[in-house]
Amino acid sequence: MSAKIQTEVVVTKKDSSLKALFGKMDVRAYTMIGAVVLIWLFFGVLNETFFTARNLSNLFTQMSVTAILAIGMVLVIVAGHIDLSVGSIVGLTGGIAAILSNWMGLPTGVVLIGTLVAGALLGLLQGWLVAYRAIPAFIVTLGGMMVFRGILLGVTNSTTISVSDPIFVALGNAYFSRGFGIILATIVLVFLALSIFKKRNSRRKYGFEVAPLGLDVTKLVILGGATYAFVLTMNSYKGMPFPIIFVLILALIFSYIANKTTFGRHVYAIGGNADAAKLSGINIKNKTMMLFMFTGLLSAIAAIVLTARLTSATISAGEMYELDAIAACVIGGTSLMGGVGTIFGAIIGALVMTSLDNGMSLMGMESFWQYIVKGSILILAVWIDISSKNKKGKKA
């Protein structure tokens, strides 16, 4: 009997040590990174072009629009809502940018500000309808998806509007110098090191369990190595693409908002339990309206990047982008039930979606297969999310 008890003690100690090693790691995020690696290896074996610096540069540039939309979509879904209009807002605000630049000949700064204001106002209008008129977000944004697409067709006369402003076009097509990429990678590495060790000191100060130093150092080496490898790969082509920098900046800003501000904590509280959030004094209506304003603003930023990259605004711009953004969020670990989701996970999800698109295109697969594969992965991600929640509920 004593031997059995001793064995149980050893097992318990082993389990606690494993929790110390991996308990604080975002398992879903690391799983998604592993999925990206497997997808890349799969397409790399089937088509040697996939791993060329030029293709990877194009892949990350293509990913930027979906990633920007997903950053805004995460917080909306976390709060328990959905936004089906972001693709149409991308199309409409892209058309507005082209009209201001081409037809009206306005300076680049005025074009950018006008486009961003238009996106924010469209989001604000939808947020007001959802928050203060209690119309379900699904209905409001579904209607918005059709209305905004119709307005785009009307104001552009169903024609493509080219953009020739070199400064505007550079926002979607220019590259930073190779030296800038190295400096950026170094800054990221220093930031990661300070963040990791600050967190260690904070946990130790308040008496919480601290992961072994070797684990944190290993994580830092892996993340730092991946960062430098990414920068060197981009540098071997033309350098760091402008759109990627936009994604990084927006990801940092909204990660800070989500994790370090009262607004962010309130959003997660609303998604976790709206009734409890209301009883605790959170202004749910105001927060909801602000969330939709953010998605409108980010849709306008995505429109600027897309229009600049294509050097034109088309009537089909942004079509189906809302589904890619939602899929990126869900694949990255955001729960459609609300209360759970991260910006980092959404960006990884966007990378998964874009990698599939890019790889299947290189293989010459028909477009219908791309829809089938991406749709199947989305269903699988939701199934996994619901299954994991059901298991947690049974354990509780």
Rank of each mutant, 00 (worst) to 15 (best):
K4L: 14
T12K: 12
K13G: 11
D15W: 03
D15K: 10
S16T: 01
L18M: 15
L21T: 12
M25K: 06
I33T: 10
T52N: 02
T66K: 07
V78Y: 05
G94A: 13
S101Q: 07
V117G: 07
L124C: 15
R133Y: 01
I135N: 02
I135Y: 00
P136E: 04
F138C: 12
T141S: 04
G143P: 05
G144P: 06
I151H: 00
L152K: 01
L153K: 11
V155A: 02
V163M: 07
N173Y: 00
S177V: 01
R178Q: 14
I183M: 13
I183P: 05
V188H: 01
N201D: 01
S202P: 02
R203P: 00
A226S: 15
A229W: 15
L232W: 07
M234Q: 04
K238H: 09
M240Q: 07
P241T: 12
V247M: 14
L250G: 02
F254N: 01
N259I: 09
T261Y: 11
G264R: 10
N273K: 01
D275M: 13
N286S: 13
T288Q: 10
L297E: 03
S299W: 03
V305T: 07
L306G: 11
L306D: 07
T307I: 07
S312W: 03
T334R: 00
S335H: 04
A350N: 04
S367K: 13
L380S: 13
W383Q: 07
D385R: 04
I386P: 00
K389P: 02
N390Y: 15
K394D: 13
